[in-house]
């Protein structure tokens, strides 16, 4: 078969050619050369709804939803560079350049033996949700967090990759938006809630049923005494139902409040306002007002701590 001289076609005739191709085929075409990439960029204007990444072992997968296409775009690349193959960082840059989007909706990191995968992710400008999965190696997770935290809105950790309280606190200070930690036994590890006090996160979420009333109270007392000028707006914790609410509130000068109120988050968080009823109001030494609410669930209690602006 004689190779077809695609570039001899008029540029406008390539538009219907691309219309007949699947997005994955267009991406494959764009990887042929810079010239091919520029042609695709000029003539194919995909409207990206969301892009998600998955890093597992030696593979990076991309799932992108594009307007005007029924099926999502699925791409895979080996994270280990093989001879003759385009390096991961270059591949990723080309793909996102063609899709004209360096904003990622979700990244799930299960880790990879190749730490340089994290360097390739450094081109991302915005990440909405970053998941550090439980099986992600610590070294990989730490490097990924170092690179991606500045551009990530919400970090969700199913493991804490840090070796010490000090390392955790350094990370907590660097996270300036929303951090969720879904890990049982947080307090049984070598970590304590002091890390939450020094955090620069606007919203914190901790699923930790083993936290005692005494430890939560200690955190609240420290916050009220304003030992750290925390920018925290909202702390959520899933705690054990057996935690005594009265014991927790004792000595905080908490005032019961029964009316409905709406809490507005900072614009940076892009979280819609939250309306709730009731709770207990407390006031810090610095004059900041906060509200504590409890919501019962099956074998658990949801504890919320809202700091009013």
């Amino acid at each position: 078969m004689t190779p077809f001289p695609l570039l001899r076609l008029p540029r406008l005739a390539l538009i219907p050619v691309f219309q007949h191709m699947e997005p994955s085929e267009i991406i494959a075409f764009s990887l042929l050369s810079n010239r091919a990439k520029n042609l695709v960029k000029m003539l194919w204007k995909p409207s990206v709804k969301t892009i998600s990444f998955l890093v597992v072992s030696n593979d990076l997968s991309i799932l992108a939803y594009l307007s005007n296409y029924d099926k999502p775009l699925r791409l895979h690349i080996k994270t280990k560079t093989v001879n003759g193959m385009i390096p991961l960082s270059k591949w990723l840059e080309r793909v996102l350049d063609v899709l004209n989007s360096f904003s990622i909706f979700q990244i799930n990191l299960h880790g990879s033996p190749q730490l340089e995968v994290c360097d390739a992710l450094a081109i991302l400008k915005e990440v909405r949700h970053l998941y550090i999965m439980a099986n992600c190696p610590n070294s990989f997770a730490k490097k990924a967090l170092e690179i991606l935290t500045p551009v990530t809105t919400e970090t969700i950790m199913f493991k804490i990759p840090f070796e010490s309280q000090e390392e955790l606190e350094i990370f907590m200070k660097s996270n300036r938006k929303y951090l969720s930690i879904f890990i049982e036994g947080f307090s049984e590890l070598k970590f304590n809630m002091d890390a939450f006090l020094v955090s620069n996160s606007l919203r914190l979420s901790l699923r930790e049923k083993s936290l005692s009333a005494r430890r939560i109270k200690q955190f609240l007392s420290n916050w009220l005494q304003n030992e750290h000028n925390s920018p925290l707006e909202h702390l959520t914790m899933i705690i054990d139902e057996s935690v005594d609410r009265l014991e927790l509130l004792e000595g905080l000068d908490a005032v019961p409040f029964s009316e409905k109120r709406t809490f507005h988050y900072s614009k940076d968080l892009e979280i819609p306002p939250n309306t709730f009823s009731g709770g207990y109001d407390v006031r810090g030494m610095n004059g900041k007002d906060a509200t504590i609410t409890f919501e019962g669930g099956y074998q658990r209690t949801r504890f919320d701590f809202y700091v009013w602006n």
Binding site: M1, P3, F4, P5, L6, L7, L9, V17, F18, H20, M21, E22, E25, A28, F29, L31, L32, S33, R35, A36, I86
Partner: peptide, 21 residues
């Protein structure tokens, strides 16, 4: 033309179209 490229990856496309790599 699109049919020539259907289902092909980058390496396979090089064989069916004259395009400098």
């Amino acid at each position: 033309i699109a049919r020539m490229l259907r289902g092909k990856n980058t390496q396979e496309m090089i064989k069916v179209i004259t395009l400098p790599t």
